[in-house]
């Protein structure tokens, strides 16, 4: 009598096993194998070899450069993100959707194109090329160019996170603060910021990860001068092209660790603060 049939929205066991295996196998081969390989190659010659590779002057220089680029790009883009989200979420004005589309632009542009546009402006044959050379100012093939390219490719991250979040949260609290006599900055610091702090952190996290890992755009403007204008990703390429696989994978492992840390914090934030993050990220 007790014939157990399937509930309507339930898949039969064989299907569950099949789809589950396909999904897991696909993810394992496509995503996990490369990751495992990075660490395996980095540790191939033992931990002390790894340590020596890290302490190489050129490697340390690349780490420094990456940190400088990120250290400038992330705070600037955070300020931008806050400003953009503030005016878009708290006010109505014509051209708002166009503005949002514009902010999304670097997401849909190839990183190489991103680097290209700065070459066209600051390069030897670019708009300002001649006058920059005359004044011996180096933007391209030097740190400023790298910072600019990094800023371009990472500036949407904080804005994209804050805009839907602040739109969702509405204007009521800020309006209340205004009626109670608070200035703009006071309102922002005491009312808005506490409400957006987790979304802000999330956006900064993603912005930072991208800033440290950016390759294409920086590659175009960098000049690849060993020990001078190579960020970590570029240094990985340099080592790899010179057949220093152990060295390349060592730096790669550092970057991979950073990526894993980013994923961990990202998941943590999503799990604990799902409601305070932008609606777009809820899943």
């Amino acid at each position: 009598m007790k014939k157990r049939f399937l509930k309507p929205a339930e898949d039969p066991l064989w299907l569950r096993l099949f789809l589950g295996s396909v999904a897991i196998a696909f993810i394992a081969v496509l995503l996990l194998l490369p990751l495992a390989l990075v660490f395996k190659e980095a540790f191939a010659n033992g931990v002390s070899a790894l340590w020596t590779a890290i302490k190489e002057p050129d490697t340390l220089a690349s780490v420094r450069l990456s940190l400088i680029a990120a250290g400038i790009a992330v705070p600037l883009n955070t300020v931008f993100g806050i400003a953009a989200a503030w005016c878009i979420a708290k006010f109505d004005f014509p051209g708002k959707t166009f503005l949002v589309t514009l902010i999304d632009l670097p997401f849909s542009v190839s990183p190489v194109v991103a680097g290209l546009i700065y070459v066209l402006v600051f390069g030897a044959q670019g708009w300002f090329g001649r006058s920059l050379a005359d004044h011996d100012i180096h933007i391209l093939f030097a740190v400023p160019g790298i910072v600019l390219a990094t800023i371009f490719v990472t500036f949407p991250f904080v804005a994209r996170e804050l805009i839907p979040l602040m739109v969702d949260q509405g204007r009521d609290e800020e309006e209340a603060a205004a009626t109670l006599g608070a200035t703009g900055f006071q309102t922002f610091l005491r009312v808005t910021l506490p409400n957006i702090k987790w979304g802000l952190l999330y956006g900064v996290l993603l912005c930072n990860a991208r800033a440290l890992g950016e390759f294409g755009a920086v590659s175009v403007v960098s000049g690849h001068i060993r020990g001078v204008t190579n960020t970590m990703p570029l240094h990985v390429q340099l080592l790899y092209d010179n057949y220093d696989y152990a060295g390349a994978f060592t730096v790669a492992a550092l970057l991979a660790m950073l990526a894993l840390l980013t994923l961990v914090f990202k998941s943590l934030l999503e799990w604990r603060y799902a409601d305070e993050l932008a609606a777009a990220h809820r899943h």
């Binding site: 009598m1 014939k3 049939f5 399937l6 509930k7 309507p8």
Partner: peptide, 9 residues
């Protein structure tokens, strides 16, 4: 019919 032996369909 033994109702519970039948799937919803």
């Amino acid at each position: 019919l033994n109702w519970l032996d039948m799937p919803a369909r």
